[in-house]
Nucleic acid binder design. Structure first.
Length: 788
DNA sequence: GAGTTTGAAACT
DNA sequence: CAGTTTCAAACTC
């Protein structure tokens, strides 16, 4: 089984990762030899795409770690978090969708709970109550909601659950044997273990729910999971489906939380060699509502702290990062979870907060806000202030601004839990579209980037780190945004730029709204301090840090989304002239002078943002957006106004964005259209130049490698006593002798009146002989001699 | 690297 | 809204 380690996965660009699950879903059932003729029509149904999200709202892959315990813990954590968030929820359901649509939703038993308990060795059932560790053999048996009676389950490890008339759902633990989790469709009263051995008697459609592990689950992996259940043969004869868990959560509403298991879809036989990359495993926790496109939540890990809470999306893709940093305990590495969400729909809400450890944490120091006092936890020396650990859904309010690409969350005091319905917040989650993501951890750091649907159709699995345990510890909450209405600010919330920071003293309530990359910038800034001061082991620190985008730096993320440092002089980087400011980023590693685009000038920055928004409410919205229906996917929202460049230079924003000019442009003499020969020529030249650059880069790399290798090999001879570098043998005397030999050869050629070509050949041959003699002499003595 | 050109942003 | 100015990036030499 070829399993890529999460450490490698984390290095993969999000764009790549994003495409995994859905690509897999596109595999037509007909391609599956084993599926043909055995699969039920519903099982063969095409995988729902974005437009089908009614059936497959969300895909959730839980955890991604290497160890079964970590995976299960991650799952447990996730479930716990959800349930915690939805404290008012009366029921929690696990739904199996989509093609399995015929089957009734699975409900975590009991319906009112969403925690995992270990009922028997090797079997884990979902029950209410506190979380319990999963047994060694991780099997989760889920009851089918309103489904066929006569539940059949397995009690003993290594067995799979087969429902008499229902479907079998297997939750695999990333291809590791003995870790499969079986979601049992049979319903009521069924207890695990009762149905052991029935699997063979009732060929069913297996839905493989992958929890934890890699996203590139392959049939082999499934087979292993099945093998652990001692039912390989049976499964091979059955249609196997992969099921992903989709989670739908509601923050403030009293509605039930539903875990929707969407099919990941692999109708192919277990023995098929086709890739089952569509099985999202481990690292992804995606949520969505049935009426919206799939969201993805990426679980990732960082070990850094930031001083501010950032809630705002990136420009493109829009990412909203909410960082939750809680008090840390030595030996308990801080974990971070980044949850990219697909937010094409309205009502998205993200929420999670961050606290800081050693960073300035201006938010914490906000006096004018109703924030609670910072909870300071002293842990073995360094103090960590827990600022925004989320605990319950009642503590989080969604502030949804219609038409805004910014998603805000209001955090209410932890003790009240009655923040719903407060003025100024659109946190009524009665709508299915509202999908708050709440992270309930004290030691879990979560970032929740939101990615627009058009930019992300796929679950973006991000691996937990090797130590990816998720700890669920409730801590005291802090307010990011005031629970009171924000009459002055809210009108602008719709268009707040990524990076809006409303600092105390600016007449606002003292909160900060930052874009995702702001947070990462801060995280990176605080990373060293945190890591060094805390003394925490950080096996993934480098990895995490490498992924942090930083303006002007060549981190992996920055490499994928590079941006030049600005050179502003007069604008103080507080005008849209400044790309950093316009992109909602802090200036960092820029060449600007008199820069105010930083945390030290929050007040000025806030004013500047407000001024920009006053001039243009959409000043901070992406200029390159989705075009009208039938038009190109990407187009400039305003259009360019070029007059001299012909729209074929980077002066033109359309050309710079590598898009065609559209009807919205007011350019003169535009040559940036599809059929433009000038444009085509430029494109070809650009492509050729790019190829050349790549080749040059490759050549340089190779040359550097060779030189390095040469020195590596020759250095020992130097240091090992008397050895000399090869070129040291070409002394002045040797060179002169060689030249004499060549001149002699030339004279001879001239004497015999050889043509020039022959003469040159003779000289070259002589030169070759000289070199050979040099080489030969070098091997014998330190003073080679050249004799013609 | 300095100077010029360009067009978006800012201003009037 | 149109014209002008300011600004920083893109470009040229």
């Amino acid at each position: 089984m070829d399993v890529v380690s999460p450490e490698l996965n984390i290095l993969l660009p999000d764009e790549i990762m994003d495409t995994e699950a859905i690509v897999m879903d596109d595999d037509p059932p007909a391609e599956s030899p084993t599926a043909s003729g055995q699969s039920q029509p519903s099982d063969d149904a095409p995988i729902p795409m974005e437009t089908d999200v009614l059936a497959v709202p969300e895909i959730v892959s839980l955890c991604s770690d290497a160890t079964p315990t970590q995976r299960t813990q991650a799952l447990t954590t996730s479930i716990t978090t959800d349930s915690t968030l939805c404290s008012t929820t009366s029921a929690t359901q696990l739904l199996l969708t989509p093609s399995i649509a015929s089957s009734s939703p699975l409900t975590l038993r009991p319906a009112t709970a969403s925690t995992l308990t270990s009922t028997s060795p090797g079997v884990v059932s979902l029950t209410s109550g506190g979380l319990q560790k999963l047994s060694a053999n991780h099997q989760i048996i889920l009851n089918k909601v309103a489904s066929s009676p006569g539940a059949d389950t397995t009690r003993s490890p290594g067995t799979t659950t087969i429902t008499p008339g229902g479907q079998k759902f297997m939750v695999t633990a990333i291809g590791k044997s003995g870790q499969s989790i079986v979601l049992q469709l049979p319903h009521t009263g069924s207890k695990p273990g009762s149905g052991q051995g029935e699997a063979k008697a009732h060929p069913q459609h297996f839905k493989v729910l992958t929890i934890g592990g890699r996203t590139d689950l392959k049939p082999v992996m499934v087979g292993q999971a099945v093998s652990s259940a001692s039912q390989v043969s049976t499964l091979q004869a059955q249609q196997l489906k992969t099921v992903q868990i989709a989670k739908k959560t509601q923050v403030s509403s009293a509605g039930p939380i539903k875990f929707i298991i969407t099919k990941a879809v692999n109708n192919k036989g277990l023995t098929a060699q086709t890739s089952v990359s569509n099985v999202i495993t481990g690292r992804v926790l995606s949520t969505s509502s049935p009426v919206t496109s799939p969201r993805t939540i990426t679980l990732s890990e960082t070990l850094s702290s930031s001083s501010k809470i950032a809630i705002s999306p990136l420009k493109s893709p829009s990412k909203l990062t909410v960082v939750s940093v809680a008090s840390q305990v030595p030996n308990s590495p801080q974990k971070s979870v980044s949850l990219p969400l697909n937010m094409a729909h309205l009502g998205q809400q993200i929420l999670v907060q961050q606290s800081t450890a050693t960073s300035p944490a201006k938010v914490v120091s906000s006096h004018s806000t109703p924030m609670k006092p910072v909870q300071t936890v002293t842990v073995g020396g360094p103090q960590f202030k827990t600022i925004f650990p989320l605990s319950t859904s009642s503590n989080v309010q969604q502030i949804q601004v219609p038409g805004s690409r910014f998603h805000y969350v209001r955090l209410v005091t932890a003790t009240t839990g009655s923040s719903t319905g407060q003025a100024g917040s659109h946190c009524t989650n009665s709508s299915m579209t509202a999908k708050p993501m709440v992270v309930n951890t004290a030691q879990v750091r979560m970032s929740v980037p939101i990615i627009p649907a058009q930019t992300m159709k796929q679950v973006v699995p991000k691996p937990l780190t090797s130590s990816g345990q998720l700890l669920t510890t409730q801590t005291q909450q802090r307010l990011i945004m005031p629970a009171t209405p924000l009459p002055q600010i809210q009108p602008n919330l719709t268009n707040l730029p990524p990076g809006t920071v409303l600092a105390p003293g600016s007449g606002n309530m003292g909160y900060a709204v930052l874009p995702a990359h702001y947070v990462t910038q801060l995280q990176q800034s605080a990373y060293v301090t945190l890591a060094s001061s805390s003394g925490f082991p950080n096996p993934t620190g480098i990895q995490t840090q490498a992924r942090l985008p930083l303006n002007g730096l060549s981190t992996s993320d920055a490499a994928s989304r590079p941006r030049k440092p600005c050179n502003c002089n007069k604008s103080q980087c507080l005008k849209l002239y400044c790309d950093c400011f316009a992109n909602g980023e802090f200036c960092q590693n820029c060449n600007c002078t008199n820069c105010f685009n930083n945390l030290e000038h929050e007040t000025e920055r806030a004013k500047a943002i407000k001024a920009c928004l006053d001039r243009n409410p959409e000043a901070f919205k992406p200029k390159i957006g989705k075009g009208k229906e039938g038009e190109s996917d990407r187009r400039h929202s305003k259009g360019c106004n070029c007059k001299r460049s012909g729209c074929l230079k980077n002066y033109c924003e359309c050309y710079e964005a590598k898009i065609m000019c559209s009807s919205t442009c007011k350019c003169v003499g535009c040559k940036n259209f599809e059929e433009s020969p000038e444009r085509k020529t430029l494109m070809h030249l650009a492509d050729a130049a790019e190829v050349r650059v790549q080749q040059q880069t490759a050549a340089k790399t190779k040359l550097s490698s060779q030189i390095s290798d040469l020195f590596t090999r020759t250095t020992p001879s130097i240091t090992s006593g008397g050895g000399r570098m090869p070129f040291t043998f070409v002394t002045k005397e040797v060179a002169e002798a060689t030249c004499e030999c060549l001149l002699e050869q030339a004279e001879q050629a001239e004497l015999i009146q050889q043509p020039q070509a022959t003469a040159e050949r003779m000289i070259l041959e002589e030169f070759g002989r000289c070199l050979m003699r040099i080489i030969s002499s070098a091997g014998k003595t330190d003073c080679p001699s050249i004799n013609c």
